[in-house]
Nucleic acid binder design. Structure first.
Lengths: 223, 223
DNA sequence: GAAAGCCATGTTGTATACCATTTGATGACG
DNA sequence: CGTCATCAAATGGTATACAACATGGCTTTC
């Protein structure tokens, strides 16, 4: 019916929508979030909204100030680059584990992802945009899930929940997308062949490429 | 002084108590948590309990099964050891950053912690037990906070929220505690002197010592 | 005229009430 | 005797109601 998303519960819907609003910058860093406003906006009551906000708070995306409201967390450039380093450490470790433990179904999912990515990158002009972001998320989520480690999965989710991950894509040109696809291909091949060391460095290479894109994103010394 | 804990809000109280119940094994892995039961147990309504559970869920400590209840997550030995490795990666990175950015107040807190730890470890017999766990938490939290990176802080919190971290202490003997104190001393000295590389490896050394304790904790091939 | 206190208003924090879904028991039917 | 349908109790999911706290403007007083 609606968006084919897994919007089975109001809480899930609230979480996804609010998260997206923050990702896309419609809710700006530092901005105060009023529970009743959000509820009205999403057609929900405060209860699921608050639960979603608690979750986002636990992920470091928003901040509860007791009795004084909820605010979108700000992230400065230094923090962000650190996060990329952490992400590289976590995800490369995931890739190593995945190379050891992944099953054929997960492999199939990765292949399907890569296939669609290739199609997107093959386009002459248009920016793949949000679709590519989703594919990228699915690809990485599949690898993390293949580790079978739920705690690790939770950690990575928290890292990739950053607004900036997608903003990194925003300024990608066609060449950047092609490179991204190629890197995903390498990662898949490494995992498929069970080469743990290769999978690890292929993933690290991929993440740090994204990091570099963010570094160059805004050269100005904006406060 | 009562429990000087920051139990200002019901949500916070619920979170701390439930977390502790899981840490101490009073709520066993796989066990179903009934919201009304927990609320009655803590003298609270379901609302703050549910918010606390959402937070714990986000941390990977419990698991929501839609319409079917909340369960304490189980962790097998392999996952656990992985978590220690991740923790080592994250915390050693924190130590490196802290060595660069820490302020004098935080240094003072660390010194105070170390002081109390030394007292505990100096005891002839008694197991320091929960008190030492708290000191350890404070020590590590202070270092993480000193990085100034909130997202990183959130990540580490999620790692150390593991039941097993404290269970590692449980089988510590006097010699183990003395070694732990000595290691904390090294970490502090490294950070204080601003030696990033030293701080990093001192922390890694410390965490992996704990990992080793867990490895040896239960030699039996218990499922 | 300025500062301090008080009240009105809005928002968060918590409790309760209601609805939807699951689950186990009971009984009818094969 | 076993199996399946049906229903009731329990529990999770959500909405609403109420209480506590914060904030801004107004009045009052010096």
């Amino acid at each position: 019916m609606t968006a084919t998303e897994d919007t089975s519960t109001a809480h899930q819907k609230a979480y996804e929508r609010i998260h997206e609003l923050i990702l896309t910058g419609k809710l700006a860093p530092g901005e105060r979030l009023r529970e009743r406003n959000l509820g009205a906006l999403l057609g929900l009551s405060r209860t699921p909204v608050r639960e979603a906000l608690r979750r986002l708070s636990s992920e470091g995306t928003v901040r509860f100030e007791p009795n004084r409201g909820v605010y979108v967390e700000e992230i400065d450039r230094g923090e962000l680059l650190e996060i990329f380093d952490i992400g590289a450490a976590l995800e490369s470790r995931c890739a190593r584990l995945a190379a050891r433990k992944i099953g054929s179904e997960a492999i199939a999912v990765l292949e399907a992802c890569l296939d669609e990515m290739t199609k997107f990158a093959g386009r002459p002009e248009g920016d793949p945009g949000p679709d590519y972001v989703k594919l990228d998320k699915r690809f990485h989520s599949t690898i993390v899930a293949a580790t079978g480690n739920r705690k690790l999965q939770a950690l990575v989710e928290h890292v990739v929940s950053l607004p900036v991950l997608s903003s990194a894509f925003r300024q990608y040109g066609p060449a950047d997308f092609r490179r991204s696809v190629r890197q995903h291909g390498e990662i898949l091949e490494a995992i498929r062949s069970g080469d743990e060391a290769w999978a690890e460095v292929a993933m690290r290479n991929h993440i740090l490429t994204g990091r570099n894109a963010v570094v160059k994103q805004d050269g100005t010394a904006a406060g």
